[in-house]
Design a protein around this nucleic acid. Structure first.
Lengths: 248, 248
DNA sequence: TTGCCGCCTTGATCAAGATCAAATGAAAGG
DNA sequence: CCTTTCATTTGATCTTGATCAAGGCGGCAA
């Protein structure tokens, strides 16, 4: 795999787009230098598999650009996505050498990989990487628990609305708004990937997106580009507490 | 709440039943002494709520004995359990003061609570608590992801079989076996709590348990006591890889 | 004893979403 | 321009689990 990984010119951590959010975000200059010595970049094309469940994995990594998914597959082919990896997210577990999930690039993807052994040594001897990793893991656990509620109790329509608002929210940070407060973004996932994430079939995903469009809650450009005229109206369809609940 | 918490006589960490598994398991004598200074015990009766979602929480805690659940509730009453806390499991997040979930005692429960501020200070200044907490959080994340597959893709029968094998497995460590390799254990959950865990209704839970009984995969004593004559046969119903998959 | 209450089981019916099956539309290649 | 391919949409029908509705079965207090 990764047959087409071009060797990237080594990038300086100082210029890294995820410098301030990734597992290395708390590192001092000397720690950063140490990380530079154990890192290498790999890139993948959209659709490529990064690692298969059960494979040996001799590295841990951060997503630099692009989007990857973690998923689990049952013998009969049923598949459930268990994580969506965005830039700065971390893959792999210190102390574990076998991948428990399939990792797949859903867009073109660049990862910053650290050789396992030196990384683990660093975790054991300096605190900043481990501290940041704990924080990130706790965030991921919260996200997974939010997803448990979605998978266990939400209707198909609520699931779609929740996914769209989640993607809109993360895009909102640094993205474009059309006139009038409307939000627009590209879906980085196929209907099938959305189905795998939401515990639905792709037909149901398609139907519910059509229904939201019919109801005027979203507009579609080009199948993948979504326009949300009124974000609050879409939020109301998620089933979540909307009452400005300040539950940090 | 906790009106009936008897003040327990302060217990020595050296005698603690979860000494070797909890968040304190890696601590040296001096660290343990420091923890002793910030800890206190609280106990709850079966059914009591430990904290409500949205409540301020000035402590973090370990479950010492008994079982608690983490759950989320939607405005219209739909409820999803997002965690099952067994002895040695940890509740609360360093740096967060507001509980994001309801925590409920499902059996009589004793918790070892640490005052937040001193605990956080200790995390920042000594490595062993943070290291162990990272490990435990990663384990919880794996468990949550396994549950995502269950909620998103498994049938009702597979869900029940998965829950029973999960409980059986954890009990197996230190428990009784009837003659002939049969395993037996008590369900620590009502049908309703099982439903909330599995994303089902209590009627479906009841029907599927009856079906497993009819099919000879389990026997019931007293509604709550389960006997599993052949563990492998029950495992086959979970939908998981059974092929002795050595995926640690 | 009796009646109540929690918890559980069972039955009848309903509906959300899955499944099976085509059709559409856009991009890619010859 | 034509064909192929792949993602998506839409329709018809089926199935699983939800919902609505009784009862059953201890345990416990009066």
């Amino acid at each position: 795999m990764a047959l087409h990984s071009p060797k990237l010119s080594p990038q300086d951590c100082g210029d890294c787009p995820i410098r301030h959010r990734a597992v290395c975000s708390r590192c001092e200059a000397d720690e950063l230098a140490r990380l530079e010595g154990m890192k290498y970049y790999r890139s993948f094309q959209a659709g490529q598999t990064v690692v298969w469940s059960g494979d040996r994995m001799d590295f841990v990594a951060s997503v630099v650009t692009g989007i990857a998914t973690l998923s689990q597959t049952m013998e009969d082919g049923r598949r459930q996505m268990v994580g969506l990896l965005l830039p700065s997210d971390f893959v792999g577990r210190p102390g574990r050498t076998v991948a428990p999930y399939d990792v797949t690039a859903t867009t073109d993807l660049v990862m910053c990989c650290f050789r396992r052994k030196p990384f683990e040594d660093m975790m054991a001897t300096t605190p900043h990487v481990a501290q940041r990793l704990l924080e990130m893991t706790l965030d991921e656990l919260d996200a997974a628990r939010e997803w448990l509620l979605l998978l266990g109790r939400k209707t198909a329509r609520e699931k779609i609305a929740s996914l769209l608002t989640m993607i809109a929210r993360r895009d909102a940070g640094l993205k474009k708004r059309s006139a009038g407060g409307a939000i627009s973004f590209d879906l980085p996932l196929t209907r099938e990937a959305m189905a795998d994430y939401l515990g639905l079939t792709l037909e149901t995903v398609s139907r519910q997106i059509s229904a939201l469009k019919r109801d005027g809650l979203i507009e579609l450009r080009d199948k993948r580009r979504i326009v949300v005229p009124d974000f609050d109206l879409l939020s109301d369809e998620t089933g979540d507490d909307t009452d400005g609940g300040l539950v940090a």
